[in-house]
Design a protein around this nucleic acid. Structure first.
Lengths: 207, 207
DNA sequence: GTTAGCATGTAAGGAGTTACATGATTTT
DNA sequence: AAAATCATGTAACTCCTTACATGCTAAC
């Protein structure tokens, strides 16, 4: 389970956990956090919502009060939905450290406990590290890329992934409660996540 | 035209331009440059090659010399393929600055002239800038994101895109022949592409 | 001899985008 | 009055991934 397709589901469950919402609103929020890349289309959001309705993960209510705007369908999580959300969030396998999937999970990290958080963070880090190693290894076997643009692309790519790895390391240290950690002094100006963000409510919302 | 699906086609044409190759080899190289993300599967490469064969963009030859390994099918570009490659590379519309598409184009920048390069680079930069503006605007409307992880994700996302924008700016300056440019002094340690990489062979390889 | 890597393919299925379709409400 | 934004949805299509299927060669 937890294949790529469950990404939207996880995100929707997480967002609805913060309060009932209608589709349009959901899409806007999703686009704000989803990968900074492509936008989520209605053509994939609404069918996903219908599917979740069928599976009983969410409920729809059409508010009959004074309608400011057009009829809006407000969704909220059911108990089954909460269970499913917790189940999905506690999956720590490879699927959990895929790009989009990781971002969503991270966004809702407050809903899991530290153990899960650490596993996901470390999983993602080692996945990125592998990628880096593989590229660097294969790069040394091939000739030094005569083309300047190809070389620049490669350099930039490696640098980006390295930054990402440092970011993850900082987060892992913060989770473990390491206040600032010495680290390698030359790269110490890397990121330093907002505060320290260690300890956090271990309670997963079981309302 | 130039929808998402043409990305593989463009990449294959570009690579074969640097010399004939068989599928397995092609895949390896593609994976080295393609987005640093997901790997390209055989299930999408081989069908793509077949399609290009049908369209006459490439030719296959089974080398009958001493076979070290198993039978390998070596592909090379046809004249039609070269034309198509040049046509694709000179498209400067929005599709050209999509993530993967941009990377591929950049990789083969040597095959186009500076005007095209500048348009693609600037297009991508403004696309990223838009994204940044939209997020920052919507962020100021919503409350300040109470959740620490949500906030951290946002911060990191913004920072990454900002870095990308600086990278593109440096490249644009380099293209224009600006040696180092003053810029804002605090962010001057940003990237500085390998050399200056201005001028480049305007000749597109016409076999 | 058996595992690992080279090498090429096909079939089924999933996920999401594009384009279409509709209509209310608010702002200019 | 027009344009923009809110709001929900469907159908067709494209693309890619997964899993399967095959078989050679090199290394252990």
């Amino acid at each position: 389970m937890a294949r790529r397709g469950d990404t939207i589901e996880l995100a929707v469950l997480g967002l609805l956990h913060e309060g009932p919402m209608h589709g349009y609103e959901l899409r806007k929020r999703l686009n704000l956090m989803l990968g900074w890349g492509r936008l989520l289309s209605y053509g994939s959001l609404y069918p996903a919502l219908k599917k979740m309705l069928r599976n009983g993960l969410i409920e729809e209510t059409v508010p009959s009060g004074p309608q400011t705007r057009r009829q809006r369908i407000v969704y909220k999580v059911t108990e089954a939905g909460t269970n499913e959300f917790e189940r999905l969030m506690s999956e720590v396998g490879p699927a959990a450290w895929e790009d989009d999937n990781f971002d969503i999970r991270f966004r809702f990290f407050s809903s899991t406990d530290m153990e899960i958080r650490l596993r996901v963070l470390e999983g993602r880090r080692s996945r990125l590290q592998e990628r880096l190693d593989r590229v660097q290894r294969e790069l040394s076997m091939t000739q030094k890329e005569a083309d300047r643009y190809a070389a620049e692309l490669q350099r930039h790519g490696v640098e980006s992934v390295e930054r990402e790895v440092r970011w993850l390391s900082d987060l892992i240290n913060a989770e473990r409660g390491v206040p600032l950690q010495d680290g390698r002094p030359e790269t110490s100006q890397s990121s330093k996540p907002s505060e320290k963000l260690p300890e956090a409510p271990t309670t997963s919302a079981t309302s």
